[in-house]
Design a protein around this nucleic acid. Structure first.
Length: 620
DNA sequence: AGCACGCCGACT
DNA sequence: GTCGGCGTGCTC
């Protein structure tokens, strides 16, 4: 047994963000990941920490203390996950302790007493293979586009493909990790596991689950080989013999940690893939710009399952439901067929309007929605036109972002179809699934319910407003949300997109999401905007400290060649940087923030003076 | 975070 | 004279 253990504390304090060496008393046995109690600080107060390394020699010159107690015999994490925390902390200008806080679930002593191992897995009941399996035979890192339309049993194709790929590893005595954006997709994946008879070989890691089951699954993941699945915090779950990582819908905003240190599943899993040398699958119906960049760099091998695609009808009407669309909706409803109307929610439905007459501004060339780029030019997402926005028909030259309400269309539909059940689903009040035939479902992006047999008609009613939203990722996210809604269609469904014209209309006609996002990516590339570069933001809670930070930053050589983007907020600073400068910049921002925080006269106890986000996609 | 060390004002 | 204020710095 080694004589010295390095210990870390799950604390966000930068002063404690390092390893402390302790002597291991005679007869005490420890592993990396053991939870221990050690004397710490001048008062030798007992503090609990995690063993991160076992060794014979210490670098520390002073006298070493001794570990007082082993709190848990079960490892709470692994050497690989600790390395992951270190790397993520470095890139996100954060601390290992802070990441450890989310990587280690709350401990439940009772759960440790009865940990049931996962039984060995022999073989799949049903045979079958996907193009994902084939691609994985030849490539380590894959970008996968599953078949869009499923069998209508409420189990999406990707979830079956994921479950099969995970089962293959399980037969070989290896584990998998599947990261899903939200509860809805967790549910979908569980249905796939059930269908393939894999439920008792899986472990669920969802942060909102009851503490004890979450904790016991956390420990079991290191005991047995299993299919591990969960939401983004599961990116840091220690897993025995991990050999494949799969990420569904990496562009979904649920994959971004909302608090400091603002990591996202894609970046974390890309690093984890390297550390544990596993397979990696990033999959979605419509790609994110970031994943297209990785395909361009040949870092990911693209694999498309293709499959049948529904018919598409495009209207360039400015009203949400033109006469023909209205007639088509009526017909399906009277035939008892389910219809879905996707409408933008408040977060989506923003557009540029004239500040004088409030009229929505459109691209002078193709009448699509436009946004204003950081240089102040309008940009059309459809025809790629960019110029100064000409004055409005009323003569006004000022514009402002406006929000378009979503409730109006539901009221309009209620008046138009008084005898029909109109079901509403939105982020605050989601409907998971419905069996009502002939129902008219009005839903916002991301909360469209499943319907038995699939929808026979899907109307994307706010297509124009969604692509015109004045945010960098508006087009990418809009297309992603359309693709996800369309995946709920039946094979003979009709799709209607309202208000599209130009190149995008042609691409949508083919349901060629990849080309749309790719065009958007190229457009951003020419502007030097993410994901060809990255955008970091620093926010301070008070003016004097903010000014100190800005001045400190401007003195540093590498910062002088970075570009500062204009910020609407007086307390926030936005700068874009090349990926290759990321590590250095993160280190720099963190040390500056640490030293200024220590000296700050304005900090209240426990408050963060600076919030550093190394990948802030919301600021532009 | 705690906790000790340290160097200046009003107090039994 | 000394009790105590909280600024600065360290904790294996």
């Amino acid at each position: 047994m080694p004589s010295i253990a390095a210990v870390r504390f799950a604390s966000p304090l930068p002063q404690l963000d390092r390893e402390y060496d302790y002597l291991i008393p005679e007869g005490m046995s420890l592993v990396v990941g053991s939870l221990v109690e050690v004397p710490f600080g001048s008062g030798k107060k007992a503090k609990s920490g995690v063993v991160v390394e076992l060794k014979e020699l210490s670098e520390h010159k002073g006298e070493l203390g001794s570990i007082t107690e082993v709190l848990s015999l079960h490892p709470q994490t692994s050497a690989e996950v600790l390395e992951l925390c270190k790397q993520v902390a470095q890139r996100q200008a954060s601390t290992v302790g802070e990441l450890l806080t989310s990587a280690l679930p709350k401990r439940f002593i009772r759960a440790e007493k009865n940990l049931i191992p996962i039984p060995a897995f022999e073989q799949l009941d049903s045979e079958g293979t996907s193009s994902l399996d084939e691609t994985l035979l030849a490539a380590k890192r894959v970008h996968y586009t599953p078949e869009l339309i499923s069998e209508g049993d409420g189990i999406p194709n990707w979830s079956i493909d994921f479950a099969r790929a995970a089962a293959r590893q399980l037969i070989a005595g290896r584990s998998s990790l599947i990261i899903l954006p939200d509860y809805r997709e967790v549910r979908h994946f569980e249905l796939a596991l059930e269908k393939l008879g894999l439920t008792q070989h899986s472990l669920r890691h969802v942060s909102t689950d009851t503490g004890s089951s979450r904790y016991s699954n956390h420990l079991r993941a290191q005991m047995s080989h299993a299919i591990n699945f969960g939401t983004r915090t599961a990116c840091f779950s220690a897993i025995r013999d991990l050999s494949i990582i799969m990420l569904w819908d990496d562009g979904d905003e649920s994959h971004i940690e909302q608090g400091s240190p603002y990591w996202n599943s894609r970046d974390v899993l890309l690093q984890r893939q390297q550390i544990e040398d596993t397979h990696l699958v990033i999959a979605s119906h419509s790609p994110s710009a970031e994943s297209l960049r990785l395909i361009d760099l040949n870092y990911l091998v693209a694999s498309d399952a293709n499959g049948t695609k529904p018919l598409v009808r495009i209207t360039d009407s400015f009203t949400r439901l033109d006469d023909e669309t209205f007639a088509l909706v009526s017909k399906r409803i009277s035939d008892g067929k389910p219809v879905l109307i996707q409408i933008a929610n408040l977060g989506w439905a923003s557009a540029i309007a004239c500040s004088t007459c409030k009229e929505l501004r459109k691209c002078p060339n193709c009448q699509s929605g436009v946004w204003i780029d950081p240089a102040g030019m309008y940009r059309c997402r459809s025809c790629q036109q960019s110029d100064l926005l000409p004055p409005c028909s009323c003569g006004g030259t000022n514009t402002r972002p406006v929000r378009i309400g979503a409730s109006a269309i539901a009221d309009q539909l209620r008046r138009s179809f008084p005898k029909t059940t109109i079901l509403e689903s939105n982020g605050d009040n989601p409907l998971i699934s419905t069996s009502a035939s002939g129902a008219l479902v009005v839903a916002t992006p991301g909360s469209e319910p499943d319907v038995v047999g699939g929808y026979d008609l899907i109307v994307i009613a706010d297509a124009a407003q969604m692509i015109g939203a004045p945010r960098l990722k508006a087009l990418e996210r809009a297309v992603g949300s359309w693709a996800n809604a369309i995946s709920l269609a039946s094979k003979q469904s009709l799709l209607i997109f309202v208000g599209l014209s130009g190149v995008i209309a042609d691409q949508i006609k083919e349901l060629d999401f990849k080309s749309i996002v790719s065009g958007d990516f190229q457009d951003r590339l020419s502007l030097g905007l993410p994901p060809s570069t990255r955008v970091a933001s620093v926010i301070s809670n008070n003016q004097p400290d903010f000014i100190l930070f800005k001045e400190g930053l401007e003195k540093i050589a590498i910062v002088q060649r970075l570009r500062f983007l204009p910020s609407a907020d007086k307390l926030s600073l936005i700068l874009d940087y090349q990926y290759s400068d990321g590590a250095e910049l993160a280190q720099l921002l963190r040390s500056l923030a640490n030293s200024l925080t220590a000296q700050s006269k304005h900090k209240k106890p426990g408050e963060r003076v600076y919030r550093i986000n190394m990948d802030d996609s919301k600021v532009i």
